[in-house]
Amino acid sequence: MTTARVRAHRRLQAFRVVVLTVLGLFFLVPLGSMAAYSVRVPAGGRTLDFWRQLGQDPDLRGAIVTSLELSLLTVVLMLVLLVPTMVWVRLRVPGMSRIVEFLCLLPLTIPAIVLVVGLKGVYAWVTYFLGDSSLTLTFAYVVLVLPYAYRSIDAGLASIDVVTLSEAARGLGAGWFTVITRIIVPNIGAALLSAAFISVALVLGEFTLASLLSYTNLQVVINLLGKSDSQTSVAASLASLVFAFVLLILLSLVGRRRGARRTAPALDLMAPPVAKEG
C-alpha cells in the first residue's frame, strides 16, 4: 500500500539523503584536498617530505612551542582568574553575578579586530614592564577565551550545590582556600577540563591578535610560510586542524558524559558562540 503517508515519508528520506550528501561533500572536499595537496609532487607521485618538514623547520618548531606555551599559560591564568571569582560570586556576592556574566560574555560581541585596535596602547605598557616576548599574548588570550570558559564553568557550578557544599566544609573547619581547591574544584573537574580544551583550541588557532600586535605564534608562521612553501604550510594547517578537531571532539565527549543537565557550551542559545577566528 503506497499511501500518501508512505510517499511523504519517502520524499523526506530522499530530501535528507540529498542534503546530507551535498553538504557532507562540501565539508569533506576541502579537508581531503588539504591532505592530497600536502603530499603531492609536481611531477606526479606522493611524498611525505612536507610533513617531515614540520619537525625540521626551525621557525615552525619555535612557533609550535610558542603556541603550546601560550595555550598552557592561558589555561592556567584563565582558571586562576575565573574559578575563584565565580565561586566567590556564588557564595558571597550573588548580586554581582549579572555583572560578571556580562563582562565574561562581552568579548563575544567585540570583534577581535576591534579589540586589537584598543589593545595596541595597553600592550605598549605590557612591553614596557614585561618585555616583548610573544608569551605576553597570554593576557589578551584570556580575554578571548573568557566567554567559552565562563559558560563551561558556569554549567559545572550550576550542577552542584556550591553553597551547601562550602557551608558543610566550613562547618568542618575548612578555610576559603581549602573550600575552593579541595571541595569545589574536584566536583567540577569535567567543566574545568572542557573550559581548558576549548581555550587550547582557540589559542592554537589564533591569528588576529598575534599578527596585528606583531608577535609570533603558530598561525602567524603558517601564514608566512604560505608565501614561500605552500605545501608545508598546508601540511602544518592540516596538522593544527586535526589537533584542534581531536581536542574539540574530546570536549564534546566530556560534555556528553556529564549528562543532559548541562548544555554543552557551544549549544547555548542565548549567548551564542561566535567563531572569533573566522
Partner: peptide, 13 residues
C-alpha cells in the same frame, strides 16, 4: 570554530 589561516589554506589547496 574552524576559521582563520587554516581555513583559508584549505580552500587554497
Amino acid at each position: 570554530q574552524f576559521g582563520g589561516v587554516t581555513l583559508a589554506f584549505a580552500f587554497i589547496a
